[in-house]
């Protein structure tokens, strides 16, 4: 394999993985607070539409990404309101959110299927980007790829290095106890859900602002569900999201390359690989961790909290 092909594959993997990283890291924080939001797909698609629309009208990528962020937040606020104030079941509300998001974006975006935009380009740093091999791999990625990595770090830092992060985790583990010592469970969870929505929105917008300069209904094509799977895969540990997303995106991209190289396996079975590999890796991780008790699962995940006092 020659060098430029290798670099191309890595860039391809980064493009396929980044939407998953954004959506999954947002959902990770949400789940750490004890909330399970299955509406990731719906929030992503709304972000994809809004990012595209704003980029189309303004041509300003900062505004476009910001709009996607706000869009994801806005639609997640429906979920937050219903689950936190009206105490609805989270699984069902999340599914409803996905339905609603897909329908809303398809309807609102009807006028934009004929349009195209200027993509957000990869950066080029003089000198650094020109270093052979290292340059293209480390210093010439898309700015949103770096942002995704930074968000993972930020979530890790927030969860494990700040007081608020500690509180959020304790709420996820035992909301009654956290409430008893005076923490505002609903407020923390509300904020976490909005953050999850914002990240899903940006992840969706990555598809329409970086990967392809088009908008089409259902263009997220199930990536929100994969992101949900990645959170579990990562055992709710932020940095493992990167690992999982790269593995998943990597196998997706590599199976396309394998077809190009004509590796003699049926394409259907090759296409199964990303899903089967995710399960296998998960099992092997568990085997290795077998003797350690797993303390990363938020105990209150999906449970409804209501304070009586």
């Amino acid at each position: 394999m020659n060098e430029s092909l290798f670099i191309n594959i890595i860039i391809g993997i980064s493009i396929a993985s980044t939407p998953l990283i954004f959506a999954a890291i947002g959902e990770l924080l949400v789940e750490r607070s004890g909330v399970l939001n299955l509406g990731v797909e719906g929030m992503m698609i709304v972000g994809a539409l809004l990012g595209f629309v704003v980029q189309f009208h303004t041509g300003n990528p900062f505004l476009a990404v910001f709009a996607a962020l706000l869009g994801g937040m806005a639609i997640s606020s429906i979920f937050a309101f219903l689950t936190q104030f009206l105490l609805t079941n989270q699984v069902a509300t999340g599914l409803a959110l996905t339905l609603f998001g897909l329908g809303f974006s398809a309807f609102a975006g009807r006028g934009y299927t004929e349009e195209t935009i200027v993509l957000i380009k990869a950066i080029h740093i003089p000198v650094l980007s020109d270093i052979p091999f290292i340059g293209p791999l480390v210093f010439s990625m898309n700015p949103l790829v770096y942002l995704a990595f930074f968000m993972v770090y930020l979530v890790w830092w927030f969860l494990f290095k700040t007081k608020q992060g500690l509180i959020l985790r304790s709420i996820g583990d035992n909301h009654d106890a956290a409430h008893a010592i005076g923490h505002n469970v609903v407020r923390y969870r509300f904020m976490a859900i909005l953050f999850g929505g914002a990240m899903a929105g940006v992840g969706g917008a990555f598809l329409s602002l970086v990967q392809v300069p088009i908008w089409g209904e259902d263009m997220t094509a199930g990536r929100g569900w994969i992101a949900l799977g990645l959170v579990v895969f990562a055992s709710w540990l932020p940095f493992r999201i990167i690992l999982g997303a790269i593995l998943f995106g990597g196998i997706t991209v590599l199976q396309l390359h394998a077809q190009g190289f004509d590796i003699r396996i049926s394409a259907q079975y090759l296409s199964m690989l990303p899903y089967l590999a995710t399960i296998l890796i998960l099992v092997s991780l568990r085997i290795r961790l077998k003797n350690k008790t797993n303390r990363t699962v938020p105990n209150c995940l999906g449970r409804i909290f209501h304070s009586t006092s």
Binding site: A92, T93, L95, L99, F100, L102, G103, F104, F107, E217
Partner: peptide
């Protein structure tokens, strides 16, 4: 898409 929006709302 109207059907999907409608189903989502109904559930909410």
């Amino acid at each position: 898409s109207i059907t999907q929006i409608f189903q989502g709302m109904l559930l909410f």
